[in-house]
Write a protein that binds this DNA or RNA. Structure first.
Lengths: 344, 344
DNA sequence: CTGTTAGCGCGTTCAC
DNA sequence: GTGAACGCGCTAACAG
């Protein structure tokens, strides 16, 4: 019943364990004949090296940790899929740590980054505090951030500044001047998504460029949730009936916006233009105009970057920017009282 | 820079490594004073035992593998969340193997179930072939199936037979007699989801109970995908215009059904009743009548069952049945030409 | 080229 | 109650 070990192979092949190990690790200094014999014995015995013993001996864990709020938003799942596809091809196992609370986040940031646990760390959509950052540095573990910016770390960031700008600009181009923004929670979020601030800033930039003053009362914040989005929208439109267009931080919230519109007897897009963010699967069915990001691709990029860092740590943190683009569908339209500029 | 080991602790505390180990593992035969002193040194040095060395010494991997088609359907993600929540509390790491192709499935079923890799195996929505089953048995690894039935294994199965029945019965109760079924692919699927056959059987059972002949031409099969669902529905309704209600294998496909209805100028539910399956998040927004299953809960149950099996293997495979219920919303209604029985 | 041996860090005997 | 020594299975360094 006991598993078969390298020693069994050595004995049966009539060689030393060192030789078997060399064959296993493609060490060139083995004669073709011996190599052949060892290989045969290995397949006869169906021997496979014990991964744990291998790790202990190598002083490597062959393990990568992914810390992420996977399930809180559909978009995250797609990124994760990209990560998985790359790591599955590598020699690394990966263990995932799902973060849904601040306590869990702190726990993960404290306990996971240890050299005797992992060889590499991938953090998605969570920004390390300066304390965290320092500890990570000390642990000296190759780390990559995905959808989270921090100057000290390798990172793949989404061009949310541009995305927020694009969304707002699209509405402005359609003639809208009173544009609400349903945001994720901007301040003191225990998670501090990078994207929350960037999209908001992009919104502000587009307004500024158009010479329209930023109105804080046009910006309401709440969780990424349909029902929350719906209630916020009702409040936003009740307080500011002049609003003709709403930009939502996520498609999920945009669905809530449309829900509110329906319940307030506002037609979309005739009475209210709605634009979301992410381009999740359902958005196409709902004909939702939105900002698309390359979700899976960014996961792939982050995982590849991490593997590269493990093999050859770079001295200076690298940054990859993943693009965002406008996907125009049917929930945004020209402001009724607005004529397009002559040029068009 | 080198990590601190049990030996460092022993030296600093002026004891032997054996004693430190005993303290670590709550072995009672340590005097309170020595224990106290060791504990202090441990926290002074911020010592934490090396997990890999521990595994090698214990002969346990402290690792659980989850093999699943995670990302192919939204419902799977919720189950996975349940699994994660339980395993995160345990001492086990878990590594996930995402299966999106038959080749990947075979690879995982062949390579993953080895005692020197994992202590437990959780397989979601994939049915082992008899070859697989035999190999698993030989590997002698505690295994739990979730959403997949096999007499030889512990399992948490969804009551899909009842769910399929419930959905069809609901339509029958509303007076519908020509009920189409948009199924996942029934035959020769490389994945052989348990649920595919059960829901289909439930559909047949309800029809039989109502004395309505099963019509194979009312059953179309395709991937769980909105667009596929849409095209199948168009074909189904074009070929069989007498159909007044459609049961879809999944909410995702049900959305495709509604899409088709819209494009064919059929009102839902006035002209066509639609019922889905799963009750994913979006379904509430779409007012989709559907069959709900306790997705997250079933993941929790499966993970707990696996942990129990690891601690105390049962001689006979255990089966847990997770219930399904009808969630009535607004996409199903009374057949126009139909009057309810007097009693109601 | 190849066999032997010393660790990797921990748990667990086995004497004391 | 406690320390020393052995072994988990493998890699790598060292002789030969």
């Amino acid at each position: 019943m006991a598993s078969i070990t390298i020693r069994d192979v050595a004995k049966k092949a009539g060689v030393g364990v060192g030789t078997v190990s060399r064959v296993l690790n493609n060490n060139p200094s083995v004669s073709p004949e011996t190599r052949q014999k060892v290989l045969e014995t290995i397949s006869e015995l169906e021997y496979q090296p014990n991964p744990i013993a291998r790790r202990l001996s190598l002083g490597k864990t062959l393990t990568i940790a992914v810390i992420a709020p996977f399930f809180t938003r559909p978009a995250f799942v797609q990124r994760f899929r990209g990560i998985e596809s790359v790591l599955a091809e590598s020699e690394y196992d990966f263990v995932m740590y799902n973060v849904e609370t601040a306590a869990r986040r702190d726990f993960c940031f404290r306990e996971v980054p240890r050299r005797d646990r992992i060889d590499g760390l991938l953090i998605m959509s969570l920004i390390p505090t300066s304390n965290d950052a320092q500890r990570f540095q000390e642990a000296n573990i190759p780390t990559v951030l995905l959808d989270a910016a921090h100057p000290d770390f390798n990172r793949v960031i989404i061009d949310d500044l541009h995305g927020g700008y694009l969304a707002t600009k699209h509405l402005l181009d359609l003639g809208h001047r009173h544009i609400g923004y349903i945001s994720d929670i901007l301040a003191k979020s225990p998670f501090n998504y990078h994207s929350i601030f960037e999209r908001h800033q992009g919104y502000q930039n587009a307004l500024a460029e158009a010479g329209i003053p930023y109105r804080p009362d046009y910006v309401l914040q709440g969780e990424v949730d349909q029902n929350v989005g719906r209630e916020l929208t009702k409040q936003l439109l009740a307080d500011n009936p002049e609003i003709t267009a709403v930009f939502a931080y996520s498609d999920t919230q945009a669905i809530g916006v449309m829900q509110a519109a329906r319940e307030m007897n506002l037609r979309v897009p005739e009475d209210l233009s709605v634009i979301g963010y992410d381009d999740i699967e359902i958005s196409e069915y709902l004909h939702l105009t939105t900002i698309q990001q390359k979700l899976m691709q960014s996961g792939v990029q982050a995982a590849k970057l991490l593997l590269a860092e493990i093999n050859q740590p770079s001295t200076h943190p690298r940054e990859i920017i993943s693009p965002t683009t406008l996907v125009r569908r049917q929930t945004t339209s020209l402001l009724k009282t607005y004529s397009l500029p002559e040029t068009n």
